[in-house]
Amino acid sequence: MAWMAWTTETAIFFGVIAALLATFTFLAIRFPETPRTGVLGIETTRGDRLFITLLGSAFINLAWLALSGAPQPWALAICLVYAAAVFRWV
């Protein structure tokens, strides 16, 4: 594994993503759902909303890094608000 040049931070990052995927897989099997149509006018399942959340969070983090100059963890707070909004309304 040395060739992959792991760091603690990236290991935690991928660990969280893996845990999220596992949780949502479990939820999808344990509590099946029907897709719903939200503000974007497209049908989404929980998995779709997770994808939209993660992809959007990546862009929020980049925008924060480029524009704010404030410490990066604050971007995560915005991401959480964004995630809540996506899961509520999309």
Binding site: W3, M4, A5, T7, E9, F14
Partner: peptide, 17 residues
């Protein structure tokens, strides 16, 4: 994943980061 690991590190070769 390796690319993600590279992106937060610096290297001068030799697989040292």
């Amino acid at each position: 994943m390796t690319v993600v690991n590279y992106s937060v590190q610096d290297t001068f070769g030799n697989n040292q980061f």
